[in-house]
Design a protein around this nucleic acid. Structure first.
Length: 307
DNA sequence: AACCTTCCCTGATGGC
DNA sequence: TGCCATCAGGGAAGGT
């Protein structure tokens, strides 16, 4: 589940490796996530220079001469670089951690796109569960902005400010976890970092947005970039499938406070962490550090006993 | 408009 | 051992 820190980790790796290369050949599989005609895509992209890679939320953008090629990695999307002078190694799972890794692999049945570069290196897009998407936009004024028009605040930029943050919350009655998963609010936050940000700001994921105290909204505003930055600093979170462009797992899974730690002691108070479902998503929290408070707790409990 | 549910997709996992 | 149900979840689409 590549979220902002994982996509940023890939962006940083690939940008360094392929900036300035020319795409000399394109190989495509059948994939319903391609938002273009394959022949047109090949014609358009072939021969174009990769100027740089940028990111918006969970989207990765290849900036080419005349087009933007935009990747969304979905759940299991991987982008790796393959060096022809190095040996290919199949995917292996670590016997203890179960993490998938490979220093470098050849294309397999899950590899849906390959860019062959002028130095014979290849960029491989692999996506087992096919939730990923790839789009191609002509590089004209405002097209990128329009493409991303549904996305909300971009962390680490000036658009991420408290006024925008609070005004998006205005009038909302949904659960705060649901709001965090809404890409129109803060772009790039997914299930893992939503849970981590809520733990950091000591807010129960089922709390209703309109019932949050002002100080809690401020804490969440601070916590979101903080947990994302930490994810980037540790090279992303590898729960199962995430690997960087070198085929290595990230290290951030060791740093998680709540995600995937149900039953284990809270690092702050030792209480066993709990897992519930919110918005159809597994949701992890500490029942003591992140309480449902006062009347809202009574209502929640009463509701549980209704037939 | 806001909010919620369903669906897409495959591999890992656990029960029997 | 093998089979089957269940689970993981981002985001589009459809419904209320």
């Amino acid at each position: 589940m590549p979220e902002l820190p994982e996509v940023e980790t890939i962006r940083r790796g690939l940008d360094k490796q392929v900036r300035g290369s020319v795409i000399s050949e394109i190989l495509l599989s059948q994939h319903r996530g391609f938002q273009f005609k394959k022949a047109a895509f090949r014609t358009a992209v072939q021969g174009q220079l990769i100027h740089r890679l940028t990111r918006r939320g969970k989207y990765l953008v290849f900036e080419l001469d005349h087009h933007f090629c935009i990747f969304h990695l979905g759940m299991t999307g991987q982008l790796t670089l393959r060096d022809p002078s190095r040996e290919d190694v199949p995917f292996r799972r670590h016997p203890v951690t179960g993490l998938q890794r490979t220093p470098q692999h050849s294309a397999d049945e899950h590899t849906h796109l390959q860019f062959v570069l002028d130095n014979d290196h290849r960029i491989l897009f692999r996506d087992v569960r096919k939730f990923g998407k790839i789009a191609l936009l002509r590089r004209e004024k405002r097209t990128l902005e329009e493409f991303f028009s549904r996305l909300g605040l971009e962390p680490f930029t000036s658009t991420y400010n408290l006024d925008h943050f609070l005004s998006y919350m205005n009038g909302r009655r949904t659960k705060v976890k649901s709001l965090l998963l809404d890409q129109g609010f803060v772009a790039g936050v997914g299930n893992i970092y939503a849970d981590e940000a809520l733990f950091e700001s000591r807010i129960h994921p089922s709390r209703r947005v309109h019932q949050l105290r002002v100080y809690e909204k401020h804490a969440l505003f601070e916590a979101i970039p903080q947990v994302l930055e930490k994810g980037i600093r540790f090279g992303g979170t590898s729960i199962r499938d995430f690997i960087n462009t070198e085929g290595e797992a990230g290290d951030h899974q060791q740093q998680l406070n709540v995600y995937g730690r149900q039953g284990q002691p809270c690092r702050s108070c030792d209480t066993p962490l709990e897992k519930i479902v919110v918005s159809q998503r597994g949701t992890h929290f500490c029942p003591v550090c992140q309480p449902l408070r006062g009347s809202s707790r009574k209502r929640a409990l009463a509701k549980d006993f209704r037939p």
